[in-house]
Design a binder for these strands. Structure first.
Lengths: 205, 205
DNA sequence: TGCACTTGTACCGAATTGTACAAAATCTGG
DNA sequence: CCAGATTTTGTACAATTCGGTACAAGTGCA
């Protein structure tokens, strides 16, 4: 089932399904249907059935999907049935916000360190962390085997920091810097730039 | 040129082009080509040419595009050749971070107010703003004619707040709450959920 | 048993992307 | 100053990807 290549666009929707399912589970629901799930996430029922069926036959005709079971399957598919160690680079306002954000813990991620190149900030305490110097970053990333990084550095520094981290083994970036990163095909990047997101909507106003 | 319907997916790429172009302009460059721009944003040159040509013939053969002119055109297309008033709802950690973020000013957006329903937080000062009570939110939104809102409220409150704001005339939401919003076709939503973005990458690790 | 519900998938049309090239503008070397 | 080489756009055409429709078949229930 995992044999053929699954399109990125489908992988991109799975976390949304997972989030909605976890919400349903929190509300005590036991089963749902593609119809109901679709209404929650704003996607057609057929689309959801097709997406899910790429990975196996998880539903039951007449009944729908067991929420708990489907959550387990999606978590396994997305590899968030484990906890990923994540580092944050940049201890500015955005770095602070990200480091203090409490929404990662339950969803497969755990921040293990924060770095900055500003000597003024090194040593400063953010939440449970002490800001570390970027000079030791490569070494620390390697020793901890970190594969995921969040970039909260200025645009001018982002590519350079990303290059350094890729060298040290990082393969996935959540980039808060307002710039596109150049990365090889085996490295993934997701972008968060509020202005970009806003500009995607004003056209329609 | 604006006659036929432009696909959402193209509109979604334009802000990325715009950001890269503004960066080039800041570096003092005068012209660029679809080839060069494509390398910066990680999109094929043909794709970029086709996207841009949906709106007119802005380039010149042999030379490429005038960066300044193309910026002007894109800003006009995306309607960020003006400043949009934006409100922030939710004065928690995320609300603070968003309100203090300095990256909106130059890119078409201006935060005009922050609201929270927690009486403890009302009156509190964040940056240049005093947190206002959500009870007066609808009225304030109407009187200011605000069309764009950023939601930094708990997931449990997001839909209700969105409904209230739509009633008051808001047509575009940047939703930081980890939940999908149900909105009619004439209202746009963009989602920022760091966990979702991270979960879109772990599949490939 | 018969009915209502729901999945998984085959099929098809729409949307999206890639390829290729004519035409225009610029550059180069003498 | 000019001829040929080079660069680059905009678009026609082809290939691929994606999403919607429809339905056979399984399930549960009255």
């Amino acid at each position: 089932m995992n044999a053929r290549k699954i399109p990125d666009i489908i992988i991109g929707r799975l976390p949304v399904y997972l989030r909605a399912l976890q919400r349903m589970a929190d509300m005590g629901l036991k089963t749902t249907s593609s119809q109901e799930l679709g209404e929650h996430v704003g996607i057609s029922a057929a689309q959801i059935r097709k997406d899910i069926s790429q990975f196996g036959e998880f539903g039951k005709q007449g009944t729908g999907y067991s929420i708990e079971y489907l959550i387990g399957q999606l978590r396994e598919i997305l590899k968030v049935d484990r906890i990923w160690d994540v580092i944050v680079v940049g201890a500015g306002d955005m770095g602070h916000a990200v480091a203090n954000y409490q929404g990662f813990q339950d969803r497969g991620f755990h921040i293990v360190a924060i770095f900055d190149n500003d000597k003024e900030k090194v040593g400063q305490v953010i939440g449970n962390f002490k800001v570390e110097d970027t000079e030791s970053m490569s070494e620390r990333v390697k020793e901890m085997g970190v594969k995921v990084a969040m970039l909260a550095v200025p645009a001018t520094a982002a590519q350079q920091v990303a290059d350094q981290l890729m060298q040290a083994g990082v393969r996935a970036f959540l980039n808060y810097a307002p710039i596109s990163l150049a990365v090889p095909g085996n490295v993934k990047v997701q972008y968060i730039d509020p202005s970009i997101h806003l500009q995607r909507m004003t056209y329609y106003l």
